[in-house]
Design a protein around this nucleic acid. Sequence first.
DNA 1: GGTTGCTCCTGAATGC
DNA 2: TGCATTCAGGAGCAAC
Length: 283
Amino acid sequence: MPELPEVETVRRGLAPAMEGAVIDLAQVNRPDLRWPFPEQFADRLTGRRVLRLGRRSKYLLAELDGDETLIVHLGMSGRMTVSGDPLGQFHHDHPMPEKHDHVVLNMGNGARITFNDPRRFGAMDLWPSAEVERHWLIRNLGPEPLGNAFSEGYFVERLKTRNTPMKAALLDQRVVAGLGNIYVCEVLHRAGIDPRRTARRVSDRRLAATVPIVRDVLSEAIEAGGSSLRDYRRADGELGYFQHVFRVYDREGHPCPREGCGGTVTRIVQSGRSTFWCPACQR
DNA sequence: GGTTGCTCCTGAATGC
DNA sequence: TGCATTCAGGAGCAAC
C-alpha cells in the first residue's frame, strides 16, 4: 500500500524524468478513477511543462506551467512508473498500454509516465497552483509528520481528549497526514502502545514519545525505498514499491521482534482493518 | 461534534 | 478443476 514513504519514493523516482520536461501528449483512457477526471483533462495536460514534482501527505503534486497543479493519489493499488529512455538509464521500453494503464504522459524528453491502478481507488485532479492547499482533498489534512508542525506539544494536545483507539487516531489524516495501516502498526509496536487503548488513556509522556517514533519509522522507510531505487536500473524497469522489512505488519504468529519480549505477533480487526501487534509488550 | 460503519473496485486467496 | 465467495484496504461520507 502506498503510504507516505512509498509516495515519497515514487516522487523521487519520477522527478528526474518529469521536472523541467513538457508533456507532449497526455493519454487518458477512461473517464474516472475513484472520481471523474476533471473537464478536458487530457487537453489541459498536453503541452504543459512540469515545473516541480512535490508531495503533500500521500498526494503527488506536479506543478505545471499555466498555474495549474496535477494532484495525484495512488489509492491502494496505484502505481506511477517511468519507461522510455529520458536519461539513458533504462534498458527497456514498454510502448504497448497494459491493462489498467489509465493515464499515460508522454514527455518531450522521451520518458513515458504511466499511471496504472487495478482497483481504481486512486484519484487525479487539476487545480490552480496557488489554491492547492484549499483543494477539498488537501484542505483537511493534518501536519506533515516529517515537518516542524508535527510537534510533541501539538500531538499531545490533539489526542489527550480523544475517545478513540490509538490505531484509529493515528490513521486519522486530520491528526497527522500520511500514515496508513502498515506504518500505524509499526509505530504502535515500537512505541509499546496497545492499539486498542483509547488515546485519552495514554499518558502525555507516552504520546509525546510517539512523535519521534513516527518520524523515525517513516524516515527509515523512505531510506529503505531510496536504497531499493538505486537497484532500479538493474530491476527491469519496475518503479514501484520497495520491500520494507516490517516488524509486525502481516507477521501474525511470528515471535515478537522486540528483544527479550517473547510474545507473539497477533492479528485483530479494528474498524474493519487488520491490526498486527504484540499483546505482551504493547500496553 | 465525535465516532462508527458503509462504500467504491479488482485480483488474490479461499471454500465447496 | 472450476465456479462462487471472501477479503484486502484509503478515505470521504452518511448515519448514529
